[in-house]
Every structure is written in C-alpha cells, then in structure tokens.
Amino acid sequence: MLELRNISKYYNPGTVNEMCLFDHFNFSVGDQEFVSVVGSNGSGKTSMLNIICGSIPVDNGTIAINGTDITGMPEFKRLKRIGRVYQNPAMGTCPNMTILENMSLADNKGKSFNLKWGTDKNRIDFYRDRLKILNLGLEDKLQIPVGSLSGGQRQAMAMLMSTMTPIEFLILDEHTAALDPKTADLIMELTDKIVREKHLTTIMVTHNLRYAVKYGSRLIMMHRGEIVIDRAGDAKKSLKIENILDKFNEISIECGN
C-alpha cells in the first residue's frame, strides 16, 4: 500500500512565478495494483512519481508505504524497494559499461558493493536467460558496451535491470515515449509480463491512451494537480479509449493545447 496524503507542492515559492501544483493532493495505490496515469503536460504526473521516489521534496503532507512514513527518507534509500524506468532510455543503463557489467550491477542491488569480483561468473547463465526473454539477441553480445545499443534495446535492458532484484514497486515514467511504435509495443508487453511474473505494484505514466486502457487494473487521469478520472476493477475493464478521450479533449482545450 502506497499512500500520498495531503501533499502540497509549490514551484518557485516566494517569486512572481510561484505555481501551486498540488494542493492537499491525495492518492493511494493498493498492493499489486497496476495503475496507468494519463493527463496533459503539466498536470503533475511526473511530479507525482518524483514525489513518490523522493527525487523532489514536498512542501506539505506525508508519503507512506504500508503505513510507514517515508516522507523524510532520501531518494536512494526509497529506491531499495522501488524499481524505476525513465522516458530516456539512457537513464537506466551505463553506456560505457558492457551488457554483462550492467546486468551484474543491477543484480547486486540491495547487497554490498564490496571488493569481490564485480561479475559473478556463476550468474552469467542466469543473465543470458533473462536477456533471451527480450528476443533481441543481446544474450550473445554480453561483452559490448550498452552505449552502442539502440534506444529500444537499452530500454528493454533498463526494464530488466530495474526489476532484476526483489522489489515491491515499479515506477514507469513514460517509458515507451521515446521509442518507435513497434518497439514501444514490445516494451509494453515485456512490462506487463514482468509485472505479472513478479507481482509488482505498478504506476505507469503514459501519453499513450491505448496502453493506458489496454494494460493495468486501474486508470487515473490527472489535470492541474488533481485526479479527474479514477476507474478500477470492472469499470476499468469496460473503459474505452473514446470515454477518456472526450474528457481529455475537454481538458486540453481548457489548457489551450
């Protein structure tokens, strides 16, 4: 259970550009829920993810996981049980390190980074098996630097790496937005597969309404720091793109987009 309670967030406080994004914002996600988040630019989707992960501080309110207040916990400690994939495929991997080294790094999350060998030879077969799932042939390129892979390949790796160790939450920040439609479909299927396999509580921000409708167990639409649509269970299953598109257009016209 992840909860945001009475969150307030101001940008540029005390200046003429002061902007209130969240004013007593409330949001909670149940265990193993898969929430798709849609909304226009500036509606607060990514800010919400940043607040959950601790990348930006809040001005008011509490963030809690399973009832424990984590508002003051630094980002790197929160990420112990959170996996995060970013819009930019370069954010989830180390370009100058090889595929094998990247996999080894991800595999060591939560353990001590001591003076033992960086790559455990006994794990290489396991890494190969994981990479095989992607169907991109990366399992035969373990020694090449990740920087020479395409955006889609890197994002696929980022997806694998962020979910390699036991985590409870998966945060996806428009993780298919920088990819071509076909690769995006591939990554989305991979996401769904991993989320089911690992029983992760997932929050996915996306601009792709089709994905938002097709995947996940709950859909929310955000607008100006508030949730304007929230559908879960059967109401989510019966949701059609047209239903949310109308609302979306209404919002967009209001914003002048």
């Binding site: 180390c94 390190m97 080294e101 790094l105």
Partner: peptide
C-alpha cells in the same frame, strides 16, 4: 563497478539504492 557507473550515469547509482 559502482565508481565507473557514477561517472557514467548517476541516476543508475541512485536506482541501485
């Protein structure tokens, strides 16, 4: 490995907790 990744991609290091 960690030292190399912090120069390469700080965000990943944070992601590794």
């Amino acid at each position: 490995y960690l030292l190399r990744s912090v120069g390469d991609n700080e965000t990943l290091v944070t992601s590794l907790a």
